[in-house]
Amino acid sequence: MSDAGALSIPEPPEAWAAGSPDAEPQLLAAGPQEWRISGDWTLLALRGRYDEFRQRIAAAVAEPGEALWDLRGLRRLDTAGALTLWQGWGRKPPARLLWLPEHVTLFAQFMQPGAVPRRRARLAPGMALAGSRLLAFARHAVDIVALTGRLVLDLGRMLRHPSLIGWREISANVFRTGAQALPITALVGFLVGLTLSYLISKQLRAYGADIFVINILGLAVLRELGPLLAAIIVAGRSGSAMTAQIGVMRVTQELDALSVMGISHTVRLVAPKVIALALCLPLVALWTGALMLLGGMAAARMQLGIDPLQFLHVLPRVVQPANLWLGWSKSVLFGGLIALLACHFGLRVKPNTESLGLGVTQSVVTAITLVIVVDAVFAVLFSNVGI
């Protein structure tokens, strides 16, 4: 017999190798400092007895002196049995160990760093859920920052080499996200303006302040509601389409083909979408605001008898131009943010349909939520501008 580390081990006696097909796992003391392991140490043979054998092995290891462990009498050994021995030994091989060559492969998997993680402390379900969601949020934040960094670097390279700019792709995205969004934004904007003006008129008429409906409606539409409503509609309509387009490219392995050809995803896919949406969303917001004002004029004419020409004459005097510029600047930021989030979730889609649907849902929900948060930040930072 030889000590641990020797791979060339004498063959076991025939009496140890023989046994019944369902031989019981045995842990026997063959001497004062010698332990002999025999029988079947498999998943079926050890079922319900893992803790028993693990504790017996740990107690033997804790005894003074270095015991000799003889594994040559094992009839069958699988990963479950090897793991039981390994954990009983304290996750390290004994100093004196006799084993067969076929045992080396089973125990080698546990000797790799991090192969068998230690048992973690059990957390409450609520804490575990909160921790997992916090980690997922952190991963998304890191990936978005990385994507933004790559986009900035690629935009600089595109400015130095204009031939890299995908003018056709930018034009196509402007048409899809801007021109094709005009009907739905017009309808929603007109109805929202009509409803808002109707409710405001009902309240102002009770105090004899009918004319102030122009102040409230103009300020609310040009500064807040126009850009916000346009961004929400575009996020649900165009942001989901962008995510789905890139996600389908992942499913059909087109993204892998671009990578093989050395074409940057940000140059070919992300940059045109971000540029196009940042350019067209301010125009869509202006269009939506105009239709909201048109609906507001109609309601003011019906409820308060205010003539539309009077409405248009008073509006530029009571609403400062700074509100219009503030709304446009927010729309540029909203457009770039929606496109960036749509591309981020599209690039994270895995090659299956379930992940595609989940990515589209997350893209729309995140974009709308972040747009509202950014709008609230703008409202606080520029609360004294144009009012």
Score class of each variant (00 low, 15 high):
residue 89 W to D: 00
residue 117 P to D: 10
residue 23 A to C: 05
residue 123 L to G: 07
residue 100 L to C: 02
residue 75 R to N: 06
residue 55 Q to H: 03
residue 113 P to M: 07
residue 121 A to Y: 07
residue 26 Q to F: 11
residue 71 L to Q: 04
residue 57 I to M: 03
residue 143 D to F: 06
residue 28 L to N: 09
residue 123 L to P: 05
residue 137 F to H: 15
residue 102 E to C: 01
residue 58 A to I: 05
residue 65 G to Q: 05
residue 32 P to T: 11
residue 90 G to L: 03
residue 143 D to S: 12
residue 148 T to P: 04
residue 70 D to I: 03
residue 131 G to C: 02
residue 49 R to K: 14
residue 42 T to V: 08
residue 141 A to V: 11
residue 39 G to F: 04
residue 60 A to G: 10
residue 69 W to E: 01
residue 106 L to K: 00
residue 72 R to L: 00
residue 83 L to V: 09
residue 138 A to Y: 13
residue 67 A to Y: 06
residue 31 G to N: 07
residue 63 E to L: 14
residue 115 A to E: 11
residue 48 G to M: 03
residue 118 R to I: 12
residue 126 G to R: 07
residue 127 M to T: 12
residue 44 L to C: 09
residue 106 L to C: 04
residue 145 V to D: 06
residue 59 A to W: 13
residue 37 I to Y: 03
residue 23 A to L: 02
residue 112 Q to T: 14
residue 73 G to V: 00
residue 122 R to T: 11
residue 115 A to M: 08
residue 44 L to Q: 13
residue 106 L to N: 04
residue 103 H to S: 01
residue 98 L to Y: 01
residue 98 L to W: 04
residue 49 R to I: 06
residue 121 A to L: 11
residue 98 L to P: 04
residue 82 A to G: 02
residue 110 F to P: 05
residue 141 A to E: 13
residue 33 Q to V: 11
residue 76 R to W: 09
residue 31 G to Y: 09
residue 39 G to S: 08
residue 44 L to V: 15
residue 39 G to I: 02
residue 147 L to V: 00
residue 112 Q to K: 15
residue 78 D to G: 05
residue 43 L to K: 08
residue 67 A to D: 11
residue 148 T to V: 03
residue 117 P to M: 09
residue 141 A to Y: 13
residue 97 L to G: 01
residue 146 A to K: 12
residue 136 A to V: 11
residue 77 L to R: 02
residue 67 A to C: 07
residue 88 G to M: 00
residue 115 A to G: 12
residue 74 L to W: 06
residue 89 W to S: 00
residue 54 R to A: 07
residue 77 L to Q: 04
residue 129 L to H: 12
residue 146 A to E: 14
residue 141 A to K: 12
residue 120 R to C: 05
residue 26 Q to Y: 15
residue 97 L to D: 00
residue 51 D to I: 12
residue 91 R to P: 02
residue 91 R to F: 03
residue 107 F to V: 01
residue 26 Q to I: 10
residue 23 A to Y: 01
residue 138 A to M: 10
residue 56 R to I: 09
residue 109 Q to L: 13
residue 87 Q to S: 08
residue 138 A to N: 12
residue 132 S to L: 09
residue 60 A to S: 15
residue 141 A to C: 15
residue 111 M to L: 12
residue 59 A to P: 06
residue 108 A to R: 13
residue 99 W to V: 02
residue 129 L to S: 12
residue 81 G to L: 02
residue 80 A to G: 08
residue 110 F to C: 01
residue 60 A to T: 11
residue 115 A to K: 13
residue 92 K to W: 09
residue 67 A to I: 06
residue 27 L to R: 04
residue 31 G to C: 06
residue 137 F to C: 13
residue 82 A to F: 00
residue 72 R to P: 03
residue 84 T to Q: 00
residue 123 L to D: 07
residue 145 V to R: 08
residue 100 L to D: 03
residue 100 L to F: 01
residue 53 F to Q: 00
residue 112 Q to I: 14
residue 139 R to W: 12
residue 112 Q to L: 15
residue 86 W to L: 01
residue 52 E to G: 07
residue 68 L to G: 11
residue 110 F to T: 02
residue 50 Y to T: 12
residue 89 W to A: 00
residue 138 A to H: 13
